[in-house]
Computed example of a mutant assay.
Amino acid sequence: MQDGGIGTHRHSLPGSTDSSAPGWQDHSMSFPAHWNDDDATDHQVHWYDERTAIIRQALRTNFEGPFIYLLLGTERALLLDTGTGHADLRAVVDKLLAGRDLELVVAHTHGHGDHIGGDSQFDTVVGTAPEDVAAYFGITAWPEQIVQFDLGERVLDVIPIPGHHTADVALYDRTTRLLLTGDSLYPGRLYVTDWAAFRASIARLAGFVAAGNPVEHVLGAHIEMTDQPGIDFEMGADQHPGEHELELAPAVLAELAEVLVEAGPVPRRIVRDPFIVFPK
């Protein structure tokens, strides 16, 4: 069910906090050479480091192939998005959290169906309207205010960035210096429903980074670009041979902000090597 309250499901299986516990691996802040779409699994799980799991829902379960993030602190774990609902995400998350006494918070980058489809698999989730998101995270001036959310020895900055959806947020992880941007920036088609809001949000996000918040990688929620500059896969493609890498350099955010300034107030399609801006 959805509501504006806290994700109250708590994993209380016994276990230590060292890297030998179930589901923990050390990948030293790396990415896989490619994201598989193995017929034997509905989700590919990659540990970026010992507290950051990147989950990719298989394209064969749904062409969106969304990316889902599980961030672990010492007190709680944040699951960011739940995918399309065409696969058993709950079983994956339970396995990854086995042996951890962590409260599970389920929230979203935004409220579109391919990011909230698995919500019913979880006991409680943060709502997807702007007022729900603002109430849960303590944002009193949406969308200008940036607030902090502490997972326990791991602080995230919650940054409202409406424009693709009314309740878009980006999350900046101070520990890994990862910037999670949902559908607002990823290697693919950036669908913009509110042009003015999107331009303002991307400018604000780029300003946050420029103000002294260093970013190692920008990670979005899909891959729709091929490894050929400016070329995307066909809409609805459920196979991605020659797929662009997930991770984007922080310079791509600056590039997006710049081209939106150059575009001005009238919506228009913009093609760049790692993304395509699509007004709707």
Rank of each mutant, 00 (worst) to 15 (best):
residue 116 I to S: 05
residue 105 V to L: 08
residue 12 S to H: 02
residue 236 G to Y: 01
residue 223 I to N: 06
residue 90 R to F: 03
residue 19 S to Q: 14
residue 217 H to F: 07
residue 7 G to R: 03
residue 2 Q to V: 15
residue 70 L to V: 01
residue 201 S to F: 04
residue 122 F to Y: 08
residue 59 L to C: 09
residue 76 R to W: 00
residue 259 V to E: 14
residue 154 R to M: 06
residue 22 P to K: 03
residue 23 G to W: 00
residue 87 A to L: 05
residue 163 G to N: 08
residue 14 P to S: 08
residue 83 G to W: 07
residue 78 L to G: 02
residue 42 D to L: 09
residue 40 A to N: 15
residue 49 D to Q: 14
residue 159 I to F: 01
residue 242 G to W: 05
residue 69 Y to A: 00
residue 71 L to C: 02
residue 220 G to D: 11
residue 6 I to P: 01
residue 84 T to E: 03
residue 253 L to G: 07
residue 135 A to P: 10
residue 139 I to G: 13
residue 64 E to N: 09
residue 208 F to R: 01
residue 88 D to R: 01
residue 223 I to L: 01
residue 275 F to E: 10
residue 132 D to K: 03
residue 229 P to L: 09
residue 108 H to C: 11
residue 97 L to F: 03
residue 197 A to F: 11
residue 268 R to I: 09
residue 192 V to A: 08
residue 59 L to S: 12
residue 10 R to S: 07
residue 138 G to Q: 05
residue 117 G to F: 01
residue 61 T to I: 03
residue 127 G to N: 05
residue 192 V to M: 05
residue 144 E to G: 15
residue 239 Q to K: 12
residue 185 L to Q: 11
residue 257 A to M: 00
residue 11 H to F: 14
residue 177 R to K: 14
residue 241 P to M: 12
residue 46 H to V: 10
residue 215 V to R: 09
residue 7 G to N: 01
residue 25 Q to T: 13
residue 245 E to I: 15
residue 14 P to A: 06
residue 17 T to R: 15
residue 137 F to Q: 14
residue 236 G to T: 01
residue 220 G to C: 08
residue 23 G to A: 11
residue 260 L to F: 10
residue 33 A to W: 00
residue 6 I to L: 03
residue 47 W to A: 09
residue 210 A to S: 15
residue 217 H to D: 00
residue 146 I to D: 09
residue 190 L to Y: 04
residue 72 L to A: 11
residue 245 E to T: 15
residue 26 D to E: 15
residue 274 P to C: 07
residue 34 H to K: 11
residue 254 A to Q: 14
residue 60 R to V: 10
residue 230 G to D: 04
residue 262 E to A: 11
residue 101 D to M: 05
residue 67 F to G: 08
residue 101 D to E: 08
residue 268 R to F: 01
residue 30 S to L: 09
residue 107 A to Y: 04
residue 149 F to L: 07
residue 98 A to N: 02
residue 184 S to F: 02
residue 223 I to C: 04
residue 212 G to Y: 05
residue 17 T to P: 11
residue 49 D to A: 10
residue 44 Q to D: 11
residue 119 D to Y: 02
residue 121 Q to R: 00
residue 201 S to L: 03
residue 168 D to K: 05
residue 233 F to A: 07
residue 160 P to F: 09
